[in-house]
């Protein structure tokens, strides 16, 4: 697997969340995602960017294109230096909310991508890394 250039975007306002959606849409189109696949990854990015802004006090997104013999995927890495999440399992469960959204932000985003990893601890900030592949590139 080879990786292509990385694009970095700031996430410090809700206007920049809109910018994240647009950049992720462009990356998904370039990687050959179908309209449904684009919509899923853009929606996941929207949730995660809001999480970075609201809970992490702002941060940034790195978009990386991944090449495999059977297709291209995209990796999104959201980083913040906020307070971190003490209880990840609870944060990922449905119905957990700190007042924004329906409490489906993190858990919902996880259901829209093929790979989801979260690295966080109180005082250490949070990094959420997700990878999305189009159908066929990842075994269906």
């Amino acid at each position: 697997m080879t990786t292509a250039a990385v694009t970095t975007l700031p996430i410090t306002s809700d206007l920049e969340i809109a910018g994240v959606r647009q950049a992720v849409r462009e990356a998904a189109v370039a990687a050959g995602f179908s309209l449904v696949e684009q919509t899923k990854v853009v929606t996941a990015a929207s949730e995660l960017a809001r999480n970075t802004l609201v809970h992490g006090g702002g941060g940034r997104l790195e978009i990386t294109r991944l090449d495999r013999p059977h297709g291209q995927g995209i990796r999104l890495r959201f980083r913040d230096e906020g307070p971190g999440i003490a209880d990840v399992e609870t944060a990922l469960s449905d119905g957990y909310t700190t007042g924004h959204g329906l409490g489906l932000g993190l858990g919902g985003a996880r259901r829209l991508v093929q790979e989801f990893a979260i690295d966080t601890a109180p005082g250490r900030g949070t990094t959420v890394t997700v990878t999305a592949w189009p159908r066929g590139a990842w075994g269906g």
Partner: peptide
Amino acid sequence: LSDEGAIVARQRR
């Protein structure tokens, strides 16, 4: 095997 995976996925689709 990795090739097979892609083919099976494509055929199933």
